[in-house]
Simulated assay, not measured.
Amino acid sequence: MQNDGQGDEPMYKRGQLAKDRGRTGRVMDIEGNRVWLRPPGGGREWDAPRERVRPVPEPSATDALRPRLREVNARSRRGRWGDFSG
């Protein structure tokens, strides 16, 4: 994230993940000192003061594949290869 030159507050980009008091959302809009967020899977938007919102790093490809790999490994240990298409 970039700094807007006004202290230590980061500039947010629409679509990026951010966290507000334990709730994660995608930045939908920034209006004045408010950041509008929406849950990543959809749902109702909420707004929060800019100073309360923190960036969340996007998961890497490795992180995204890790749960599927665990599932495939568990199947192979049980001898159930089955269908790997999903």
Rank of each mutant, 00 (worst) to 15 (best):
M1D: 08
Q2P: 11
Q2L: 14
D4M: 07
D4V: 07
G5F: 07
G5H: 06
G5I: 03
Q6M: 05
Q6C: 04
G7H: 08
D8V: 09
D8N: 12
D8K: 12
P10Y: 06
P10N: 04
P10K: 06
P10H: 03
M11C: 09
M11G: 09
M11N: 06
Y12C: 01
Y12A: 02
Y12D: 01
K13T: 08
K13G: 08
Q16H: 06
L17W: 07
L17K: 11
A18M: 00
G22W: 09
G22C: 10
G22E: 06
G22Y: 10
G22L: 10
R23A: 14
T24A: 08
T24M: 11
R26F: 04
V27F: 02
V27T: 02
M28P: 01
M28N: 11
M28F: 07
D29A: 15
I30L: 07
E31G: 12
E31T: 13
G32K: 10
G32A: 11
N33L: 11
N33W: 08
R34H: 06
V35R: 00
W36M: 04
L37V: 00
L37A: 01
L37G: 00
P39L: 08
P39H: 10
P39R: 11
P40Q: 06
G41T: 08
G41K: 14
G42Q: 07
G42W: 06
G43N: 08
G43C: 07
W46Y: 12
W46F: 01
D47L: 01
A48Q: 04
A48I: 03
P49T: 04
R50F: 04
E51Y: 13
E51I: 10
E51N: 12
R52M: 13
V53R: 02
R54Q: 15
R54S: 15
R54K: 15
R54G: 08
R54A: 15
P55E: 00
P55K: 00
V56E: 03
V56C: 05
V56N: 02
P57T: 14
P57H: 13
P57L: 13
E58Q: 14
P59A: 12
P59K: 13
P59Q: 09
S60N: 05
S60G: 12
S60D: 06
A61I: 03
A61V: 02
D63E: 15
D63A: 15
D63T: 12
L65V: 07
R66F: 09
R66I: 02
P67G: 04
P67M: 05
P67W: 01
R68Y: 11
R68A: 13
R70T: 09
R70A: 15
R70E: 13
R70G: 10
E71C: 05
V72H: 02
N73Q: 12
A74M: 01
R75K: 14
R75V: 02
R75A: 03
S76E: 05
R77E: 12
R77L: 13
R78G: 03
R78Q: 14
R78P: 00
R78Y: 08
G79Y: 03
G79Q: 05
G79N: 08
R80P: 00
R80V: 08
W81Q: 11
W81C: 05
G82L: 09
D83W: 10
D83P: 06
S85P: 03
S85L: 13
S85V: 07
G86L: 02
G86T: 01
G86V: 01
